[in-house]
């Protein structure tokens, strides 16, 4: 079961090369920082949400959103390109390792990229939002969210038939989740019928859990749903890798 490590190492070597290019750091930060300035420091300066200042409410949501987009996008995009264009995925399929090892390697690499982007947002949050603090529940939720969306990235990376297809999934999955799942405002502000639809999105439950200071019944439900999503996505991704055939 050590077959996952070279896959993870490969991704980290590629990541390290990108990391030292200024453009990468900027692209990982730009969207959440724009949201932070627009909604946090601009629109929400004088707002209170759920009994706290808006910035303290917003930062965990941005951490959740950023971990989602980075874990998901890097895996989905890289896997799609490696499978269809660069053909480097063939090397993994032809190696004497099983589908779980490939899945774990890809997911851990996606998690590392998601965590890296999230740490940048957390650092900014600690600087600009005086009431924002790091809790063990936030870290657990962050890890779970990165894992879950890296798994989803594998699924999308394996089923898309062209690189353009990944944008379609972005538009139908990631974009609605970013705005409707409680990143910028509580889901309870949405119309009742939409709230039920939004409850299907995993990020909705991440946003519930990541803002908890203690694990209450609502938090436990959110945690259970996230774990269920994570297991389902992991097994589905592993299955798609196992069934891969050119």
């Amino acid at each position: 079961m050590t077959g996952w490590f070279p896959i993870f190492l490969r991704e980290m070597l590629l990541f390290k090369r990108k990391l030292f290019k200024l453009g990468y750091l900027f692209s990982a930060m730009v969207v959440p920082v724009i949201y932070l300035i627009t909604f946090g420091l601009g629109v929400g300066r004088s707002m209170q949400v759920q009994g706290t200042d808006y910035l303290t409410f917003l930062i965990p949501g941005l951490v959740a959103m950023s971990s989602m987009t980075n874990s998901y996008t890097w895996v989905a995009s890289a896997l799609n390109l490696n499978r269809l264009y660069f053909k480097t995925f063939q090397v993994l399929v032809q190696a004497p390792i099983n589908s779980f090892a490939i899945m774990i390697g890809e997911v851990l690499a996606g998690m590392a990229k998601g965590l890296f982007a999230s740490i940048l947002i957390i650092a900014v949050g600690l600087l600009v939002a005086p009431d924002f603090t790091l809790s063990w529940l936030l870290i657990l939720t962050l890890l779970l969210n990165c894992f879950l969306f890296a798994c989803l990235g594998v699924i999308v990376g394996m089923i898309t038939k062209s690189h353009e297809d990944t944008s379609t999934y972005n538009n139908f999955l990631i974009m609605p989740m970013s705005f409707f799942s409680g990143t910028f405002f509580p889901v309870s502000h949405m119309p009742k019928i939409l709230q039920e639809a939004i409850a299907v999105f995993p990020l909705t439950h991440t946003n519930i859990l990541i803002r908890k200071s203690m694990l209450d019944s609502e938090g436990l439900t959110a945690l259970a749903i996230l774990v269920a999503y994570a297991i389902t996505f992991f097994l589905l991704g592993s299955r798609l890798i196992r069934q891969y055939s050119e």
Binding site: G3, I7, L13, K87, L92, A95, P96
Partner: peptide
């Protein structure tokens, strides 16, 4: 296997390509 299409990691060095492959095997 030597494939028809180049499936080396273009952004990695020759040594890194072989290192990853060797570890996988």
């Amino acid at each position: 296997v030597v494939p028809q299409e180049n499936n080396l990691d273009r952004e990695l060095s020759a040594y890194e390509n072989l290192m990853i492959y060797g570890m996988l095997h």
